[in-house]
Amino acid sequence: MLTLTAVMAIQTHHADRIYRGDKQFEYRRLRPRFTPGIKVYIYEPLPVQAVTGYFHVAGLIDLDNNLAELEHNKNERNIVETYLHGARRPTAIAIASPMRLAQPLAFGQLGLKVAPQSYVYTESE
């Protein structure tokens, strides 16, 4: 049975933090149409250029002056604030059950013809 999943581009240093469990939220300038429980594959762009793992979406949180409650690391919070400055609908994606793959996948193995710029939907088993 095929299930709707997503592939999201995440920079390598953020992906590493997700896999270590240091990063509990992925921040986006526009709210994605994810539902809780959806599996999100992590595509790491240059220099990796591969799908290295995945996580499940625990929930979506609209950011409204509550970033300090979510991002406790002040340096990371400053980076996120700069990234989200001027965003139309900044959102935190709550990360659950991150898993690094034993072998990275080419994005084509997930049925994609091009690498995602932000995220794309796909189907997987």
Rank of each mutant, 00 (worst) to 15 (best):
Y43V: 04
T3Q: 08
Y121M: 11
Q117R: 08
R88C: 04
I18C: 01
A6Y: 05
V40T: 02
K113E: 06
D64G: 02
F55H: 08
K39E: 11
T91I: 00
Y119R: 10
V80Y: 00
I79R: 12
L60H: 08
R28T: 07
E125W: 14
Y43L: 12
L105K: 06
I79Q: 14
N78H: 10
Y19I: 05
M1V: 11
G53R: 00
A115C: 10
V7Q: 01
K74S: 14
K23L: 01
E81D: 09
T12G: 14
Y43F: 15
S118K: 13
P116N: 00
L60K: 04
Q49N: 07
H72S: 11
R29L: 06
V40W: 09
P90H: 01
K113Y: 03
G111P: 15
N78L: 10
I61T: 07
V114D: 12
V80S: 03
G53I: 03
Q103D: 08
L112G: 08
G37S: 14
A58K: 00
N78M: 02
Y43K: 07
K39A: 11
M8H: 11
E44H: 02
T35I: 10
D22Q: 03
T35Y: 15
E26Y: 05
F107H: 07
Y54G: 02
L46S: 15
T122M: 13
R33H: 15
Y19M: 15
A58T: 03
P98M: 06
G59M: 01
K74T: 14
E69L: 14
V51S: 03
T122W: 03
N73E: 13
V48T: 12
E123G: 07
L67P: 04
G86C: 12
F55V: 05
K113P: 12
P104F: 14
Y83M: 04
R33T: 01
Y54Q: 00
I79W: 02
I93S: 01
G21R: 12
P32E: 08
G108K: 08
F55R: 01
N75E: 08
Y27L: 07
G21I: 02
R31K: 08
V120L: 14
R20M: 05
P36I: 08
G111M: 09
V51D: 07
D16A: 14
A58Q: 08
S124T: 11
N75D: 13
I93M: 02
I10Q: 14
V120Q: 12
I42F: 13
V40R: 04
